[in-house]
Simulated scan of single mutants.
Amino acid sequence: MMTKNELSQLYYLNREIEQLKIRQRELKTIAEGTTTRITGLPFGTGISDKIGNYASDLADLDTLIAISLQKCWQEIKRLNQFINTIDDSQLRQIFSLRYINGLTWQQIAFAIGESDESYPRRKHNTFLKAAENAESSVIIS
């Protein structure tokens, strides 16, 4: 059995990757950016390699992104294994659309042929609650 927090890890990993990619784009923009020289102010005569200065940071970000993508694939595999244990086909769709595809409850409702977002949410929550109760009764026994 998985908790909502465990089920949501893929969502947070994807957000983490997006933040890393934003930082990567920012660094590339800084490294590749050019500045205009203001006349009348002193300036250095040395040559500056902006891309070289940021190369290490960019390489580190590339590595972090690659590691996070690998974690995403592992999480997708783990989620699919859990979802495939669910007997109800519609419930499997709900869990897959929510946790693998990252859809909103309204989008899920439309995808399964319902118009009310509370239907898939209620079915999802009822399943998790029942599974949690079943698991806790096994532990107590």
Rank of each mutant, 00 (worst) to 15 (best):
D49K: 15
D87L: 14
A55L: 11
F82I: 02
S8Y: 11
I65V: 12
Q74T: 07
E16N: 14
A109F: 06
S48N: 06
S96F: 13
I76S: 01
N125H: 11
G113L: 09
W73K: 08
G113D: 05
R15S: 03
R78V: 08
K71Q: 04
S136Y: 10
L97R: 05
K123V: 12
R122H: 13
I140P: 00
T63W: 07
L79A: 05
I30H: 03
R15W: 04
S8G: 05
A109R: 03
I67D: 10
N14S: 09
G33Y: 12
D116H: 13
S8D: 06
Q9R: 15
I76M: 07
I112S: 05
A66D: 09
L20A: 03
R121S: 06
T126E: 07
A66V: 06
V138C: 01
L91Y: 06
A130W: 05
T29L: 11
C72P: 00
A31T: 06
I38S: 03
S118D: 04
Q24P: 01
I86T: 12
K21V: 12
Q106D: 10
A109M: 10
T63M: 05
T29Y: 12
K129W: 01
L91D: 04
R78E: 05
L13C: 07
E26K: 10
L91R: 07
T34F: 04
F110S: 08
L128H: 12
S136N: 14
K71I: 00
G113A: 03
A66T: 12
G33F: 14
Y12G: 00
T104S: 10
L27Y: 13
L27N: 06
